[in-house]
């Protein structure tokens, strides 16, 4: 037992030695998000260690990495979802269109209206399909009349590719839909607020391949109007939908670059080991 532990420990040191500066192209000319030297602590746990990167407008950025590498934590930094966790502390310079989002003047409610989020497990409210989509616009007072609200709901559902399937049952509960439909309902709910950026935390991990393909197609269409950051466990999915890919390991950004480059010829051994399914 003791020797095993020792072995594990020495192994870890090895990996940490391999972790140096981020390699690849993590910065872009145009920036929607500009993050510099971001650190996240959960109590004493240094969950994200000195990460810097840019996210360009209208691009899909995929975050990949083994479980517990901090990619979901990092995603939640972008709309301050970590605020709800007491022991979580974020430091560094994080700018959305040049504005520091962790500034005291930045309201998290406003930020989350600008940076929407879709979660791993489809989580529609136990309300009707209509009310699910209408909730955000109502909350922020985006519609001045019922007709306008109807319009927002229908457009959002249409953009999420769900309108045809649910047109005749808008007043039925959203929880009665299939998993894939529920996730598209959640996407519709998010885009009903017209955010600038959409964060997706493994949006297809609970779905079957067909539903996944539909979601992926949707992400591709949404790219025209939104900037998307997506965490995914499926490397094939990252390869299919993203323009740039970032590989996280033990809370560090190991490598970031154009997706084709990451998947055919990554620069870092750790990235290579991860995407080719080797012991790392």
């Amino acid at each position: 037992m003791a020797t095993e532990n020792a072995e594990e420990k020495s192994n870890k040191v090895d990996i940490e030695q391999q972790l140096g500066e981020t390699v690849g192209e993590q910065f872009t000319d145009e920036q929607k998000f500009a993050l510099r030297n971001v650190d996240v602590y959960y109590g004493d746990n240094h969950a994200i260690q000195d990460i810097s990167m840019d996210i360009a407008p209208n691009e899909v950025v995929a975050f990949i990495g083994p479980s517990g590498c901090g990619k979901s934590t990092f995603l939640r930094v972008l709309n301050r979802m970590n605020d709800t966790i007491d022991i979580c502390r974020v430091s560094g310079d994080i700018r959305l269109d040049g504005e520091d989002i962790y500034d005291k003047k930045m309201d998290p409610v406003l930020l989350r209206a600008r940076v929407g989020m879709v979660f791993q497990k489809p989580n529609p409210f136990p309300k009707s399909i209509y009310d699910n989509v209408a909730y955000g616009p109502k909350l922020h007072g985006l519609a001045s009349s019922r007709a306008e609200l109807d319009d927002i709901v229908r457009t959002s559902l249409k953009r999420a590719g769900l309108l045809k399937e649910v047109e005749n049952r808008l007043d039925e509960p959203g929880t009665g839909l299939s998993g894939g439909q529920q996730q598209r309902l959640c996407i519709a709910r998010t885009i009903a607020v017209s955010p600038e950026v959409i964060l997706m935390d493994e949006p297809a991990s609970a779905l079957d391949p067909i539903a996944t393909a539909i979601i992926e197609e949707l992400i591709d269409e949404l790219r025209e109007n939104y900037t998307i950051a997506i965490v995914t466990h499926s490397m094939q999915q990252a390869a299919r939908i993203s323009q740039r890919t970032a590989y996280f390991h033990l809370g560090k950004l190991v490598e970031m670059g154009p997706t084709e480059k990451i998947f055919t010829n990554p620069d870092h051994t750790l990235t290579e080991n991860y995407i080719t399914g080797r012991f790392g």
Partner: peptide
Amino acid sequence: RQPAASDLR
């Protein structure tokens, strides 16, 4: 196997 990176090459 859907090889990637060096395996794909």
